[in-house]
């Protein structure tokens, strides 16, 4: 059974079929790019995979388990974490707390243990802090750990979102336009970080991106979407020379 298997997924908003008959298979250590013109339905696929929207058709199985009926938090428990196209940080909380919240599921102590500050509370909180700092260091954010998330500059907020997603120890990471709004050098740095993260956290990555430098640079395989469905898939070279893809981007 494939690691991630999406079959015939679909959802519509009013009369609009935002995703329609979308299918995808993904291996356990793949770094897969998902591209397509604006409004193709890429973000909606992420929302379907993570249970933010309930699919009206199709199914998703992940790691040997059907997840398409689960709620978002249960899908995260199953091992899928994500970032958002328009950043959704816990703005008024500290950088550290943003990551700590993602580590919630790795702690086990009960409310009573927490209130009474029993030993388990301290042990698990200390372990959480250690891991949170470790993740923040990967993104060069540990110096800002006590700052409010909203006080970070845009580029660092994007990084913090990835850091937070890694907090829940996912097996699959969904990144929605991680390089949006970044300049050339920031994008190159981000590419290195993504490759590093993939190895260090041994996580599969599905990545939506408009920046072709990034997508072509790090993805082994690319899936192209248009009008809610897959129109092509293959290696970066194959995609670059595909007539269908070029037509879709030129809007023909």
């Amino acid at each position: 059974m494939p690691f991630l298997s999406v079959k015939n997924l679909g959802v519509s908003f009013g009369g609009l079929k935002a995703v329609d008959g979308f299918s995808l298979e993904m291996g356990k250590d793949e770094l897969l790019g998902l591209i397509g013109p604006n409004g193709a339905g890429k973000t909606t696929v992420f929302n379907l995979l993570t249970g933010v929207y309930a699919p009206s058709q199709g199914s998703v199985s992940f790691n040997g388990k059907i997840i398409s009926k689960l709620r978002t938090s249960a899908i995260n428990d199953a091992g899928i974490a994500r970032t958002f196209q328009n950043i959704r940080l816990f703005k008024n909380l500290s950088v550290m707390d943003n990551v700590r919240i993602a580590l919630h599921g790795s702690m086990r102590y009960s409310p009573l243990t927490g209130i009474l500050r029993l030993r388990e509370y301290w042990e698990q909180e200390e372990e959480t802090d250690r891991r949170a700092v470790e993740i923040l260091e990967v993104f060069g954010l540990s110096d800002a750990k006590d700052e409010k998330a909203s006080s970070l500059p845009y580029g660092r907020q994007r990084k913090l979102e990835i850091a937070r997603a890694l907090g829940s120890s996912p097996k699959l990471l969904l990144l929605d336009e991680p390089a949006a709004g970044m300049n050339h050098s920031e994008t190159s740095e981000l590419m290195d970080t993504i490759s590093f993260v993939r190895k260090k956290f041994s996580v599969a990555i599905l990545l939506i991106e408009h920046d072709m430098q990034l997508v072509m640079g790090i993805c082994e395989r690319i899936v192209v979407m248009d009008y809610g469905t897959v129109i092509a898939s293959g290696s970066p070279e194959e995609i670059k020379s595909s007539k269908v893809v070029i037509a879709a981007y030129l809007g023909e």
């Binding site: 249970g51 938090s73 958002f84 816990f90 703005k91 008024n92 919240i101 919630h104």
Partner: peptide, 16 residues
């Protein structure tokens, strides 16, 4: 607190 800040993001972080 995470629910106050952003319910969808909280769910995506595994908070029921």
């Amino acid at each position: 607190l995470s629910i106050r800040e952003d319910e969808i993001a909280a769910e995506a972080c595994g908070i029921n």
